[in-house]
Design a binder for these strands. Structure first.
Length: 322
DNA sequence: AATCGCACCAACCGCTGCCCA
DNA sequence: ATGGGCAGCGGTTGGTGCGAT
């Protein structure tokens, strides 16, 4: 129906956010918490629509966001979840609490799609040499193979963990240096926009530091602000905190802390109380909205110890629908 | 050195669903 | 029951940087 576009009002700024705007937004959210986005432009004086503010926060400024290349376990998890859930990036992102749906979506579109295409084409050629086609695989076989793949992903996670939690987190958090480096690891922070932003964000970091020292806040906001500052500092590589802090749980905004997540992933207990018919997709809404990521039926299925055991011969089956 | 094409990602757009009056 | 307002989501686009030619 003809509802006018929400951000169609005149005088609404579009385009990249400036560090100053970021600072204003972060400061406001630290004080008031995320939510009630409609009030944000009004109360902050930002010439942005509420939607833009929300996006900027959830995709960039929100504490606990991991920036940097995707690790192999993450990659596998995304592939499997995409096979299971389709392009429901928010649902997928709920299993990777440090990644935003936007990030995952971008990563999928720019990296994984191609990767899988390649994989598929190479597989097609092997199929033409006598292997059965995807389409001819029975549903049961398909599911079993998928389960095997998932089991392997899980295995990879566990292996990573077995190196020690710190190592895992190091792995999971690398490079945590503020700019995406997935396929451009050497991209210098000297690219014009990056430079401008990085240096300005450094300023934000410093400003926030001072601001936090001087501004008394409610407890919740304070906790939030610390992690936010940490996040921003991290994002610009100015974080001087110890590695302990680095690996410390970043329970912020109700999002599941990393160690907790992996604890939940790896110590999965099938007697999870949340198990219910309706729980299958209960993680679809962003975990940023309050609760810890509950273990859903899907997680059960994904991570159940018993799954995939003895099915290792079914590895590397290409995932269809890519 | 200049140009072109590609890759990447932040941000926008538009739709959907939920909540509330 | 209904309609408006808002948040959330997925698809798409535009700007920027890099590498190849």
């Amino acid at each position: 129906m003809g509802r006018p576009p929400y951000c169609d009002k005149g005088g609404v700024k579009k385009g990249p956010w400036t560090p100053e705007e970021d600072l204003i937004l972060v400061s406001y959210i630290q004080e008031h918490g995320p939510g009630n986005w409609k009030a944000v432009p009004t109360n902050t004086g930002l010439m942005r629509c509420s939607k833009s503010c929300r996006l900027r926060w959830t995709n960039y400024l929100r504490p606990g966001i991991k920036r940097g290349s995707f690790t192999e376990p993450e990659e596998k998890l995304i592939i499997h979840l995409q096979a299971l859930l389709g392009n429901r990036w928010a649902a997928i992102a709920s299993y990777l609490p440090e990644r935003t749906d936007n990030d995952i979506k971008n990563y999928w579109n720019t990296h994984l799609k191609k990767k899988l295409k390649k994989l598929q084409s190479s597989n097609d050629s092997s199929m033409s040499r006598g292997l059965s086609s995807n389409q001819s695989i029975s549903k049961g076989q398909w599911e079993r193979r998928l389960q095997t793949d998932i089991h392997m992903a899980k295995q990879a996670l566990r292996e990573a963990l077995s190196l020690g939690e710190t190592n895992l987190l190091t792995e999971l958090m690398k490079p945590s240096n503020g700019s995406y480096s997935s396929t451009r690891p050497s991209q210098p922070a000297t690219s014009s926009s990056a430079t401008t932003y990085a240096s300005s964000t450094e300023n934000i970091s410093r400003l926030l530091e001072g601001w936090m020292k001087n501004t008394p806040k409610p407890r919740a906001a304070q906790a939030n602000s610390e992690s936010t500052q940490h996040s921003i500092s991290k994002a610009v590589g100015t974080d001087s905190s110890s590695s302990e802090e680095e690996t410390a749980s970043v329970a912020n905004n109700g999002r599941t802390a990393v160690p907790n997540l992996f604890e939940s992933l790896l110590n999965f207990d099938s007697s999870t109380p949340e198990l219910s018919e309706t729980s299958l997709f209960q993680c679809e809404s962003r975990p940023s909205s309050e609760a810890q990521v509950p273990l859903s039926l899907l997680e059960t299925w994904l991570l159940d110890e018993g799954f995939g055991q003895g099915e290792m011969e079914l590895i590397d089956m290409p995932l269809g629908e890519f």
